[in-house]
Design a protein around this nucleic acid. Structure first.
Length: 577
RNA sequence: GGCCCCGUCGUCCAGUGGUCUAGGACGCCGGCCUUUCAAGCCGGAAACGCCGGUUCGAACCCGGUCGGGGCUGCCA
């Protein structure tokens, strides 16, 4: 088969989709300049009205009110998406900035991993979606490091996280290593700022010091539990004033917190189920809630796109935002990703390190494609598509609400699609390090020439690069190890000795030793012994490659060469007595 | 226990009141091709959790129920 025909075929069959994707991209491009989001054109303070985030519309930009928004039809999936530029135009008209009215806003999103371990694929998917969202809107994608847990944060994890994102192609416009106008982007570099915010909150009465012991707190939780109330119902400002200990945020009890999640729609929390949470530890460091919220505000984040595990923390972040002041971001909570057992992924469950996938020889483009399908889809029936197509079509409001299971089998299939779509030379170049590490040694140029002859056959049979190494192992070892099951199933049968013997004679007498000659020789062997190809060639396959599963035999023998092939046959004859 | 989120084939998605005898993909099963294995091609099995309600009509809207998940830390 023509190498790569598979994917090319799929791609070329999609001209219509490409056109659509292009028109979507153009629609974005046609947005008035101030909406397009040139980095740096950020204005704070007016884009969103405090407490009314559900009313803010960013033109051409899937904000707001999720499923209940009647406008959704104009920007929704399927046909709606195809009509996107029309809908977008309507919106622009309706929402065009009025003279002296709303300010300009650029999409600014971030991924904020905490370097206390490796990122699991759930976080990677969150990074991907943030990145695609930013790229779709010509916005800014920021990499922040949430290392307020000084006890557990480690530089090594941060390095590995960054390496993983780079491998995946998720380039960040601002953040650690690359800087930006809103830096620093590492929380440990912003301790003074958090201290300042805490002082301000205590000063304004939004927060208070609390020196109660864990026992006291535990008793309050027990009490609430017994009364079938929310466990933190009684975690409120105590009568006695403290000047040390932790700092808690004082949650106003007069109003529920309600917000419109871009993915989930309206979500409401009654005030009494939100505890007076700790914002500052007694060791002088901010908690996640405080640091993250402060950063989002200071960094002018417009959309907080994160895992659903943070959904129930969101009212705290909203309350904090209001108390600190500034422009509240919109929230979008992604469904969680589960392991094959249906249990959520975590730092010790399921695939964690991108490095593993890289080492096994997954292609970043395939990985992106697969990951984008977890909680989103380009349309009803297209599963293989380029990242550009995905970016052009990506809408937050199209993101699914249900959890997804990470399916390695499908990932492997998809990676195989991408591998087969590679040009022969790309394949050889990219597979090379995997072959060498699989073999445990460098290959000589002569050996590479041999590999290159086999490459197309190996490429077609590889789901990932590291399994290519296994397929050609027989070429680069002197003594093949015979696979036990293969040997007993194939070699311990009548007639095998004849097959090996006659084959040896025929191959030995060849003038040319190439694919066609080998094939002719072996076919004449089959004729001479009056035996079918299916039966007659398997013993040779095992003798040559050590296994009943291998790349095509004639090519394998031709590339192995006469001397080594004959040696393997005679070795088997010896072994068979 | 309390609060919040979610519920379409085994898995990932499509589906936004009639065109759904529910569509695509992976996987699975069968067949073709065939020197093995892949790939490719053809075919097949496979799902709207359940109960009510609204409606002429519901996978789609509402309620309940059951099930799954998250949070409930001086982790994030």
């Amino acid at each position: 088969m023509d190498q790569g025909q598979g994917l090319r075929h799929v791609l070329s069959a999609r001209t219509g989709d490409r056109d659509r994707a292009r028109s979507a991209r153009e629609a974005v491009d046609r947005l008035p300049g101030q909406w397009r989001g040139a980095p740096g054109r950020v204005h704070l303070g007016h884009g969103l009205r405090r407490g009314r985030i559900d009313r803010v519309h960013l033109p051409g930009h899937d904000v707001v009110a999720g499923r209940r928004d009647p406008d959704r039809h104009a920007l929704g999936r399927g046909a709606g998406r195809a009509r996107r530029h029309d809908g977008g135009r309507d919106r622009r008209h309706r929402n065009a900035p009025q003279p002296g009215g709303e300010e300009v806003m650029t999409v600014r999103v971030r991924i904020a991993p905490s370097p206390t371990g490796l990122v699991h694929v759930g976080n990677v998917r969150a990074a991907l979606f943030n990145w695609m969202f930013a790229r779709h809107h010509g916005g800014v994608f920021i990499l922040r490091i949430d290392d307020t847990d000084i006890e557990r944060s480690e530089q090594q994890y941060e390095d590995e996280i960054k390496a993983g994102f780079r491998w995946l192609g998720l380039d960040w416009d601002e953040g650690v290593d690359v800087g930006g106008a809103y830096g620093p982007y590492r929380q440990s570099d912003r301790m003074d700022r958090y201290r300042q915010v805490v002082d301000q909150l205590v000063e304004s009465g939004h927060a208070y010091y609390d020196d109660r012991s864990t026992e006291e707190l535990e008793a309050l939780r027990q009490k609430a539990q017994h009364e079938k109330r929310h466990p933190n119902h009684y975690i409120r400002r105590p009568d006695r004033e403290a000047t040390s200990g932790v700092v808690r945020f004082s949650v106003p009890q007069d109003a529920a917190v309600e917000f419109d999640d871009v993915i989930r729609g309206n979500v409401r929390f009654e005030a009494d189920v939100i505890d007076d949470f700790v914002i500052y530890r007694s060791n002088g460091t901010p908690t996640y809630h405080l640091a993250s919220t402060t950063d989002d505000l200071d960094h002018a984040i417009t959309h907080v796109i994160r895992g659903e595990d943070l959904l129930s923390s969101t009212p705290k972040h909203i309350l904090l935002s209001r108390a600190i002041g500034g422009t509240e971001p919109l929230y979008a909570h992604l469904p969680l990703i589960m392991g094959p057992d249906g249990k959520p992924l975590s730092k010790r469950h399921g695939p964690t390190s991108l490095k593993e996938f890289r080492d096994r020889g997954f292609l970043p483009e395939a990985f992106r494609n697969y990951l984008s399908l977890l909680g989103w889809s380009l349309d009803g029936d297209q599963t293989v598509f380029t990242t550009e197509e995905a970016i052009a079509a990506f809408e937050l409001s199209d993101v699914s609400k249900n959890p997804a299971v990470f399916d390695t089998t499908k990932l492997e299939w998809m990676n195989g699609e991408y591998i087969r779509a590679l040009s022969e030379s790309d394949f050889i170049e990219r597979v090379r390090p995997h072959v060498e590490s699989g073999l445990g040694r460098r290959l000589t140029e002569a050996e590479w020439a041999q590999f290159s002859q086999m490459a197309p056959l190996v490429q077609e049979r590889s789901k990932f690069f590291s399994d290519a190494a296994e397929q050609v192992r027989f070429l680069f070892t002197d003594e093949v190890d015979y696979d036990e099951a293969s040997w007993s199933k194939v070699m311990e049968k009548d007639g095998v000795v004849d097959v090996l013997r006659v084959s040896s004679e025929k191959l030995a007498g060849l003038e040319q030793f190439d694919h066609d000659a080998v094939e002719a020789a072996l076919r004449s062997m089959l004729e001479a012994l009056e035996i079918g190809a299916r039966k007659g060639l398997q013993p040779l396959r095992v003798a040559i490659t050590g296994s009943q599963v291998s790349p095509p035999l004639f090519e394998s023998i031709a590339v192995l060469g006469r001397e080594r092939s004959l040696a393997r046959l005679s070795r088997c004859l010896d072994r068979l007595g």
